[in-house]
Design a protein around this nucleic acid. Structure first.
Length: 341
DNA sequence: AAGCACCTCAACCGCATTCGT
DNA sequence: CACGAATGCGGTTGAGGTGCT
């Protein structure tokens, strides 16, 4: 299996995306929904390969992405999850719904790795080697024999069991609803993203640190009024949105009032009327949406695994109110498991 | 102020896995 | 079941930014 043919084509544009390209891509996805990336360059006329389009969407244009300024909480989570999962950034990202795997990977490589090395006094226990040994510990003899897929499934099971044991030990049974979600979402990204929604910092903490175009999602928001209008509109009827039924099948439905959106505004209560600053709100409030988007290529999962909205809403509500408590639990669990790394 | 070194992160590459026929 | 296409993922690169001398 060679490289996808699209990448071999002469005339495929590379390098940073321009606003115009982003608009084309976003407009197309707004109309047709994400997925079927193969057809995107053809249908949009973008001189980009399908992979590039997908990457651009998933890493930068997709709603609900938080950029820059990792919180201490997120940092801990990443360290913790990296210790558990190794460099499986997509899996780690599934626990941090507002972050992309690329972002987490970059943050790890540029910040956390060094930080940990400092803390550990340059001890050779660089996490990667640590993981390799971890991996070889847990399944050293079988690893070579097992196909990677099988090994990965087994690893996921192990991780799940470890986490479950950890949580049980920490007596957070009442939160155990997270566990099946987590385990089922190591690859599917589905529910834990919703759970993580409330973990993030207030929008005020969300910075758009880079002033380069590529890192600035609000450019698209600015250029595409509809991009912002739908969520914004729904936010004005926040109390309604909690009980609003939603069509999951359509892309528009994904953009329009997510089940928890009103909830989020109610909780965060820092909604701004400033159109432009709403990008922060979108990052926050659209995030449950994001879980849909992140599953965009797995609609079957989305359809099959999404609980009924009433349940989801209830869960989100419970989750949001318990967030404070949970944060401390997370800190606790992280501290308790410091021995892992 | 200029030059250099280092850092960050968006984007690319190529392999692995999944999906469709 | 086999094959090829599509997609996902992690590692790596390099342009641009920043800080230091």
């Amino acid at each position: 299996m060679g490289r996808p043919p699209c990448c071999d084509k002469i005339g495929v544009k590379k390098g940073p995306w321009t606003p115009e390209e982003d608009i084309i891509l976003v407009t197309y996805i707004q109309e047709h929904g994400p997925g079927n990336w193969r057809s995107v360059p053809t249908n949009t006329g973008l001189l980009r390969c399908s992979k590039s389009c997908r990457l651009r969407w998933t890493n930068y244009l997709r709603p609900g992405i938080k950029r820059g300024n990792f919180t201490e909480q997120e940092e801990k989570m990443i360290i913790h999850l990296q210790a558990l999962l190794g460099n499986r950034w997509a899996a780690i990202a599934s626990y941090l719904p507002q972050r992309t795997d690329n972002d987490i990977k970059n943050y790890w490589n540029t910040h956390l790795k060094k930080k940990l090395n400092k803390i550990q006094g340059g001890n050779s226990c660089d996490h990667e080697s640590h993981h390799r040994s971890r991996g070889s510990n847990s399944s050293s003899s079988s690893e070579s024999a097992m196909s990677k897929g099988k090994w990965e499934r087994r690893l996921q099971t192990d991780i799940h069991m470890a986490k479950q044991a950890l949580c049980e030990a920490l007596s957070i049974d009442n939160k155990s609803i997270n566990l099946p979600k987590i385990s089922s979402s190591i690859r599917t990204n589905s529910n834990s993203q919703i759970h993580q929604e409330t973990v993030g910092p207030p929008p005020s903490q969300i910075s758009h640190s880079s002033n380069t175009y590529a890192s600035s999602a609000e450019n698209i928001a600015r250029l595409l009024p509809n991009w912002m209008n739908k969520p914004q509109k729904s936010s004005q009827t926040s109390s309604e949105s909690i009980s609003t039924t939603q069509t999951h099948g359509s892309f528009d439905g994904q953009f329009s009032s997510p089940p928890s959106e009103g909830l989020q505004h109610g909780i965060n209560n820092n909604h701004s009327n400033n159109n432009y600053s709403n990008i922060s709100d979108v990052s926050q409030s659209v995030s449950p949406d994001t879980s849909l988007f992140q599953d965009e290529s797995k609609p079957n999962i989305q359809d099959e695994q999404l609980p009924p909205l009433s349940f989801l809403e209830k869960w989100l509500l419970d989750d949001a109110t318990a967030q404070e408590q949970e944060d401390s639990l997370m800190d606790l669990s992280l501290e308790e498991t410091n021995g892992l790394f």
